[in-house]
Simulated scan of single mutants.
Amino acid sequence: MGITKTEHFTTTQNELAILAKAMGHPARIAIIEYLLKTESCICGDIVNELPLAQPTVSQHLKELKNAGLIKGNIEGNAICYCLNEEGFNKLKGFFETITSYLTTKECC
């Protein structure tokens, strides 16, 4: 496998790519949707919502957290997760730029 050469891209481009990659799995979308419905939750609650094993859910949570899309706080023996506003604001800005472009330009 080749080297990605991320140093040839801007910090913003690399950050957006990490965010997009983290969202590139249906289980992660399901986790985000679940977190949208709840104030916060314990990992076990998420496991009960998905047709996946606990270690698999934990790996998806780790990917979302590493990308900056969710935050987790340890409360006793459990970790409570919630959405990370900062990560989603970056995505929002990117998609607002695209939406603005699409509403003002005509394509072939």
Rank of each mutant, 00 (worst) to 15 (best):
G76R: 01
G24D: 15
F94L: 10
I98H: 01
F95H: 12
H8I: 13
K92G: 03
L16W: 05
F95K: 04
T4W: 09
L35N: 03
L36G: 01
S100T: 14
N66F: 03
I74T: 14
L52F: 15
C107V: 13
I29Q: 14
G72C: 04
E39R: 08
T6P: 00
T56H: 13
T56C: 09
T38V: 15
G87A: 04
A27W: 11
E85Q: 10
F94T: 06
T6N: 13
T99W: 01
L102Q: 07
L16D: 09
T56W: 09
T103P: 00
I31Y: 05
Y81S: 03
A53E: 12
L91N: 04
I79N: 03
F95S: 11
L91I: 15
K92T: 14
I32A: 14
I46H: 01
T4S: 10
K90N: 10
N73A: 08
L52Y: 15
I74N: 05
L83M: 12
C43N: 05
M1F: 04
T6V: 04
T56F: 08
L35M: 10
C43V: 09
N89Y: 06
D45R: 07
A30N: 10
P51I: 06
Y81N: 02
I70Y: 03
I32G: 00
P26Q: 15
L16C: 09
L50C: 07
F95W: 13
T12G: 05
Y34W: 12
I31H: 04
C108A: 12
L19W: 10
A53R: 15
N73Y: 05
G93T: 15
Q54H: 08
Y81R: 07
N73H: 05
Y34E: 02
T38M: 08
H25T: 13
T97Y: 06
N84P: 00
E86S: 10
L36E: 04
M23L: 15
C80S: 09
L50T: 02
F9R: 11
N84C: 14
A27R: 07
G2S: 09
A27E: 12
L61N: 07
I70S: 02
A67V: 10
E15S: 12
N66V: 06
Y81P: 00
V57G: 02
K92D: 14
I31A: 05
I79G: 01
L52N: 08
L52A: 11
K90W: 06
T11Q: 12
H60Y: 13
T10E: 15
C108F: 07
Q59L: 14
I98P: 01
L35R: 02
S40F: 03
I70D: 01
A30H: 09
Y101S: 10
G87E: 00
C107Q: 11
A20P: 00
P55F: 14
G44M: 04
E63P: 00
I46G: 00
K105F: 09
L36Q: 12
G72A: 08
T97M: 12
T97K: 14
Q54M: 10
N48I: 03
A78F: 02
F88L: 06
L83K: 07
T10K: 06
L50A: 05
G44T: 13
N48H: 11
T6A: 12
I46Y: 01
C80W: 00
K5I: 07
C80F: 01
I18A: 08
A67D: 05
K21F: 11
E33R: 15
S58F: 02
T6Y: 09
L16V: 14
